[in-house]
């Protein structure tokens, strides 16, 4: 598969953009968990209790990043390059992803390619903190409960 190259307007911006588009990413740590429910992607920071809802384009980019594809592979499929770069930077700013310089570039899964091609609006993420205190306070979430709940006392 030929990697897509994004157009880079100015020398300085070029360097920044080149970096954003041409490196792999990973979730920013074990507190960042994600799951799709009925086609709806939810990302949650267990450490802060903040959660995020993604629209279709955003979910496709997230899926591509999680598959190990570098953002350059998302270009030329429908979304504007600037939208892609802005959104990847936003995910990093939100503390959801980190650059993973050691990781190899992976191919873009076909379903992600199709989702990016079908995207009708720019990627966007909603951020909520209305569960934060409840999730952070919940004692269960940091306790091993292999053998029982609520708090997982192991049998003698």
């Amino acid at each position: 598969m030929q990697r897509q190259q994004c157009p880079l307007p100015a020398r300085k911006l070029m360097k920044v953009r080149h970096k954003v588009f041409n490196q792999s990413y990973k979730v920013a740590g074990p507190d960042i968990v994600h799951e799709e429910f009925d086609g709806d992607l939810v990302v949650l920071n267990l450490g802060t209790g903040r959660y995020f809802g993604f629209n279709a384009a955003a979910a496709a980019i997230w899926g591509g990043l999680m598959a190990g594809a570098r953002p350059a592979r998302f270009c030329g499929l429908g979304l504007a390059d600037a939208e892609i770069g802005r959104f990847v930077a936003e995910l990093a700013d939100l503390g959801l992803i980190l650059a993973d310089p050691e990781a190899a570039d992976a191919a873009l899964p076909e379903e992600i390619r199709q989702a990016l091609a079908a995207a009708v609006s720019a990627p966007s993420v909603e951020s909520y903190d209305d569960l934060s205190d409840l999730i952070v306070a919940d004692p269960i979430h940091d306790v091993d409960q292999e053998t029982g709940w609520p708090h997982g006392i192991r049998p003698a």
Binding site: V42, Y51, E126, L131, D138
Partner: peptide
């Protein structure tokens, strides 16, 4: 917790 977050999101 992710399911709880999805229900809250909806």
């Amino acid at each position: 917790y992710l399911k709880v977050a999805h229900l809250a999101l909806l």
